[in-house]
């Protein structure tokens, strides 16, 4: 068996917002099919790193390579690469003027050039996969938070992405809705999707993550397996952070 290929390669990534140094030289390689969970205190650069992977934030310096494609300044190439990288946001960012179904079809039609029928067929398949086909005709404002986030996941999956990025997908949800979103993410992980998830859901990290990163002050402080991170964290900062979030 050959080694799975590199899906994401991040090299010497720096991102500064004026005087704020969000990322200070991040290096990371994610192999195909791996699930990476990123944890760390707020302001540690987790979200910024995620947003640099699809260049929603353009790095100050450094390189990001997606499945062999080096991201550059060329807008067309960038758009093409972004279509291969699904992203799920903390606040869902569904399009409120479109129904759940239309949310899932619009980019398929515009970017992939699929016909209305084809796009709707794929959209229904994805809505079934996330468990809410009956909400196809409903507008986002009439959906619960958990349902909205699942539509957002379906919207990304309908583009047939090679990679899925999750930016604190359950942080804005009421407790009883967190599980329905995590279940969808678990299924995706089992199906072999390459995933990078910024989340503090430790249960998810334990059962789905192949690797876990602890970030602080714009750097990856520790990069190991979930088991090792929880049972014997090496860095003082990691220990302190874990003791804070696992106390209760």
């Amino acid at each position: 068996m050959t080694e799975p290929r590199d899906m994401i390669v991040i090299k010497d990534l720096y991102k500064h917002f004026g005087n704020v140094k969000a990322l200070n030289g991040v290096n990371l390689t994610v192999k195909k099919g791996k699930v990476i969970v990123v944890i760390g205190p707020s302001g540690s650069g987790k979200s910024t790193m995620l947003r640099c992977i699809n260049h929603l934030e353009v790095p100050t310096s450094g390189e990001v390579t997606i499945d062999g494609q080096l991201l550059g300044k060329n807008e067309k190439a960038l758009n093409a690469t972004r279509a291969e990288v699904g992203m799920v946001f903390q606040l869902f960012n569904l399009f409120p003027h479109l129904t759940a179904l239309e949310n899932v079809t619009v980019a398929q039609k515009v970017v992939r050039g699929r016909s209305k029928e084809e796009a709707e067929e794929i959209a229904m398949k994805q809505l079934k996969r996330v468990g809410i086909p009956e909400k196809a005709g409903v507008y986002p404002n009439n959906l619960s938070g958990g349902q909205q986030q699942r539509v957002a996941i379906a919207r990304s999956l309908a583009m047939n992405p090679k990679i899925m990025l999750f930016d604190e997908p359950t942080s804005a949800l009421d407790p009883e809705m967190i599980k329905e979103v995590l279940d969808v993410m678990l299924d995706l992980a089992k199906e072999g999707m390459t995933m990078v998830c910024v989340t503090h859901e430790m249960g998810f990290a334990r059962s789905a993550a192949d690797e876990i990163l602890f970030m602080d002050e714009g750097l990856i402080v520790e990069h190991t397996t979930p088991h090792d991170l929880y049972n014997n964290p090496k860095e003082e900062r990691t220990k302190l952070f874990l003791s804070q979030i696992l106390q209760h």
């Binding site: 758009n79 093409a80 690469t81 972004r82 992203m87 960012n93 970017v111 919207r155």
Partner: peptide, 18 residues
Amino acid sequence: IGRGQMEAGRSLGMSYGQ
């Protein structure tokens, strides 16, 4: 219109104009 709408569109591969 919130910034997240543009970001969601761009993250799906749509251009600024689209």
